[in-house]
Computed example of a mutant assay.
Amino acid sequence: MPTAEPPKPVAPPPQESASYGSITSPRSRKQLGLFFAGASFFLLSTVITRRSLVRRYKEITPKFYQPNTRPNTSFNAGLEAFEALNLATVNVCSIAMMAGGGMLWAFDISSMDDMRRKIRGGLGIDGSGRSEKDAEEEMEEWLATVLARKEEKERRRKEGVEEKRTNERGAPR
């Protein structure tokens, strides 16, 4: 009868570059690409927002020979709200893009394979000799014990309610 060998740990795939420390390495430049794209997008959105605010300010200031008791009444609330929403969305998206790129660089993630390896390594799936199927079975066992405890608590609670509805001799009240 053949004996089964224990599973061997899976080695991580070869990396793109051996020099991780250098910020000018190809891997680091690839990781920082999203950060710099977000920073450029943020700069562009800041310029657009500034231009919009200056334009709005120029619209509300009175002209030279215009009396200051009569303000400019050309105001479309719906259009102004729509423009404000668009500017806020562009600003938030650019900051999120910049933050995401910075986090990917900080955690040394440059591809989806890197992200999968880091997440699975944190869960103990890769590198520890366990396969995904073993991890799923362990999760199912844990979930089954949690659900069994919950059912036991509900059963005890129902029995306690039924006991309270009877008197000391066991007769219903």
Rank of each mutant, 00 (worst) to 15 (best):
P67K: 00
R117C: 01
G124P: 06
N72A: 10
Y65L: 08
R27H: 03
Y65Q: 10
F36L: 10
E140Q: 12
L79F: 07
A96I: 07
R130V: 03
P71A: 09
G102V: 02
E5I: 02
T89L: 13
G21Y: 04
L79Y: 07
T49R: 14
G33D: 04
F42L: 13
M97W: 05
I60Q: 09
T89I: 13
R51I: 02
S28L: 01
G33A: 15
W142Q: 10
I95V: 14
K58I: 06
G100I: 00
T73I: 09
E162Q: 12
R56I: 12
P62W: 03
V54G: 02
N68I: 09
I119G: 03
G170F: 05
F42K: 05
T49D: 04
G33E: 05
A84L: 10
N72S: 10
M98P: 00
E159T: 01
E151P: 01
L79C: 04
T145R: 15
K150Q: 08
Q66S: 13
E80C: 10
G122K: 11
G124K: 00
V54Y: 11
I125K: 05
Q66G: 02
A135M: 06
G100P: 00
R120K: 04
S28Y: 02
I119P: 04
E138H: 12
P9C: 06
G122S: 11
K118D: 00
S52W: 12
G129R: 05
S19Q: 10
E137D: 09
A4V: 11
R29G: 07
K133R: 15
P172K: 11
T145C: 09
R27N: 07
N72T: 10
T24C: 06
F36A: 01
D113M: 05
A11G: 01
R55L: 07
P67Y: 00
V146I: 14
S94M: 06
L147Q: 14
A18D: 12
G127Y: 04
T69C: 03
R165W: 04
W105D: 12
T166W: 05
L44A: 08
S25A: 13
S111H: 01
G121R: 04
M103A: 12
A148H: 07
S25E: 00
R27S: 09
F36Q: 11
F41G: 01
A106C: 00
C93R: 15
L104H: 06
L104A: 11
V146S: 02
A88D: 08
F75S: 04
E154V: 07
M1W: 15
G129W: 03
D114H: 14
S28R: 14
T69Y: 14
S25H: 07
D113N: 09
D114C: 05
L85A: 14
M1S: 08
N68C: 02
S28M: 08
A77E: 09
W105N: 10
Q31M: 15
S74T: 11
F75C: 04
A77S: 12
L43R: 06
K118T: 07
T69L: 02
W105G: 03
T89E: 08
Q66A: 13
A39N: 05
M97R: 11
F36S: 04
K164V: 10
E154L: 13
T46D: 05
E151W: 04
G129E: 06
R155Y: 04
T61E: 09
K153P: 00
A144W: 01
R27E: 13
P2I: 07
P2V: 12
N86T: 07
R130E: 11
G38P: 08
R165L: 07
R116Q: 09
A171F: 06
R29P: 03
P12L: 02
P71V: 08
K30S: 13
K153V: 10
